Structures are given as C-alpha cells and as structure tokens.
Computed example of a mutant assay.
Amino acid sequence: MSHSLLRSVRRPARLAGALTGLLLAGGAQAADDKLYLFNWTEYMDPAIIEAFEERYDVEVVQNYFNSLPEMMAKLNAGGVSQYDVIVPSNYYVPRLIETGLVQPLDKSRLEQLDNVMATFQNPGYDPGGDYSVPYQWGTTGIIYNTETFPEAPKSWSLLFEADQNPAHPFAVAGDGQVTMGGACAYLGHGYDCTGLDAWREAAKLLIETKSRDTFSGFTDGTPALQQLSRGVVHAAMSFNGDYLAFKDEDPEGFADTAFMIPDEGAEMWVDTMMIPAEAPNPELAHAFIDFLLEAEVGAQLSNYNYYASPNAAAAPYLDEVLTQPPVQPSDDDMARLRFIPSLSGDELQIFQQLWSEVQAR
C-alpha cells in the first residue's frame, strides 16, 4: 500500500510458503543468532533470505501481516519487543514514530545508505530519513478490460461516472485513504487532499457510486486482479507491480487488460524498513537493512516483486521490464503522483468517521 497495505495474497503459486510463515507468526523470542522479520506476505525473495543467513551465520524468522492496522495492533500487543525489522507503508511511518513504537536508525551502521535515490532520502513522511529506509515503491491506479473499454478515458471517471460505465461491474479499494484519495483527485482536490470539506464531497461521491447497480463492492488490490482475470469485474483499483506479476504468470487471463494512472492524480506509495523500539537484535536489524541496500540485492528484490527499486545503485541490475511503464511511470505520470497524507489525532478520527459512513450506507 500501498498501498501497499492491500496485498493479502501476492502470487498464488507461492501461497503455500506464505501460509507456512503465518502459522509460525507471533511469540518471537530474542536470540543472538536470529533475525525476526515482520513483513507483508509474499514480499521477499527466499534466495535473499538464504544469502543473508549464509553471510551472517544466522536464521531469519519471517512473520507476516496482511494489513497495516494488523501490523500496528501486533506491535501494540507486544510485538515491539518481538520483531527486529518491520515493513510499514509511508503513511504509517509518522504514526509509528509519534507513538514511540520504533527507534531511530544508527546510520553509522548503514554503509550502503548512499545508494538510496535522492527522492527518498528526505521524505515528507520521515524528514531526514532518521527512522526509515525505503524497501520498494509503486503506484495505485486503475486496471480495466480493454475490450469492454476500448476508448477508456485516462481518468477516475471510469469508476465514478455512470455514463463512462453504464453496464459493467467495477470495484474500488477497501482502504479508506486509497479510495477517498481517488475520489478527491477526480473532484479536483488532489489525491493527497485533507480537510473536512474535501472529504465530505468525496464521501458523497462514493456513496453515490455505491448506489449504482454495477458497483460490485470494496475489493482490495490483489483480489481485484483475480476478479478482473475471471471477468467478475471489468475495472478496479490495484497496484502496478502486482498487475505486472499477475500478467506475467497468467498471460491469457490478462491479455485484454491495461493499467492506468489517471490524469487527475494517483497514489505513489513507499514501503519502508524500520526497527521497533525494543527490537531483540538491533545490530542484526541494521545489518539486514544494509544488506538489502546493496546494489545487486536491491535489484534482486525488485526483480522478484515486480516493483520499482528506491535503490539508485540497483538500476544496472534490474530486469528491463522494471525500467518502463507500468512499473516505472512516464515523466508526465510521475508528476501526477502523490503520497497518501499521514493522519493523526482529531483529523484521523474525522476521516475514520466519514469512511465508516461511506461503508455503512
């Protein structure tokens, strides 16, 4: 969640491995020769883990979460002292910092830190990069059936205007900020809109959208791709890397599909690496983060995930498909991308109330 945050299952062919990790999740115990990684499911190349284990003569124990609220709940329930490295999305980074659930990085232990692209060295969600290091980045846009919509507008109107799609099922994301961001962008408030007036207008649009006979429901990014391939929906919100991965694994099912970044603006998300405040092995956590920052390892991670690398030094080792759309947006599309704003306090409460009303009506 980009996003991120919606990838409950990444690649069906490797689901068994993810489920094995889930059965082992929870109750991690500190050990000098173990690193406890808390990550999204199916978001790490097993060969990278094996290489790290061999180099440092340690064992990596992988635990998994399927949503950012789940990750936050586990940290608050004691996970802050059970995990060494966590992988939250950008708009949760300020919440983790403000609540004291993570510790500052010791940059003297990160020899490869200069490999991070300039774009991500001083991000708004973590000024100075004092707490987080980027892991992968991507975009959230619209996937659609090109036979159903041969002249689809490059616009959120494909989802929000009945005239653009009067007869075919469609879905929007189940994450409130992702979907409200799309509605805000369509209404001219910008994808990263904040404020009660803009949110109210976006909520009203979404309630109207829900009332259409062709609305199939709130469907998260990866399930939406599965539904698109089966013809259950003809348009939905999803992630560029997941779309490319599914298309590569099922060329026939995704033959007549496309991924679009609407001209009104869309989400650019970054998943990051952070160290919990009471991590059992912070030295090994820094070693692991630095390992992933190595040029060839960073490229290996993106080549596995089909997402863009925030590692500038990784560029020469990336598969060609990762250097062009939809993984690498065009310059025009890049200019339209925005981070989801991080909300807290009264602002977060107001947003959650509005989103609850959208879901309930």
Rank of each mutant, 00 (worst) to 15 (best):
R7A: 12
S8F: 03
A13S: 05
L15D: 00
A16I: 10
L22G: 05
A25T: 13
M44F: 02
I49M: 04
A51T: 14
Y56R: 11
D57H: 13
E59N: 03
V60G: 01
L68F: 09
A73R: 14
A73H: 05
L75C: 01
A77L: 07
D84R: 02
I86M: 05
I86K: 11
V87R: 01
V87F: 00
P88A: 09
S89Q: 11
Y91K: 13
Y92E: 01
I97Y: 01
G100N: 13
L101K: 14
Q103C: 04
E111F: 06
Q112F: 08
N115P: 04
A118R: 11
Q121A: 09
P123F: 08
S132R: 02
W137F: 14
G138D: 08
T139E: 04
I142E: 08
T148H: 00
P153S: 11
E161D: 11
D163C: 07
F170I: 12
A171H: 05
Q177K: 14
Q177G: 08
A185D: 04
A185K: 06
C193H: 02
D197K: 10
L205T: 11
L205V: 11
F215V: 12
T219V: 15
P223N: 09
G231D: 03
V232G: 06
V233P: 02
A236Y: 07
M237K: 14
S238R: 06
F239T: 12
D242L: 10
A245H: 01
A245M: 04
E249W: 01
P251S: 15
P251K: 15
F254C: 03
A258S: 07
I261K: 09
D263A: 14
E264N: 07
W269R: 12
M273G: 03
P280C: 04
P282R: 15
A285L: 04
H286D: 03
L293A: 06
E294G: 10
N303S: 13
P310Y: 07
A315C: 01
D319Q: 13
Q324E: 03
Q324T: 06
P325V: 09
V327C: 05
Q328N: 08
R336E: 04
P341M: 13
P341T: 13
S342Y: 05
D346L: 15
L348Y: 06
S356W: 03
A360Y: 03
R361Q: 13
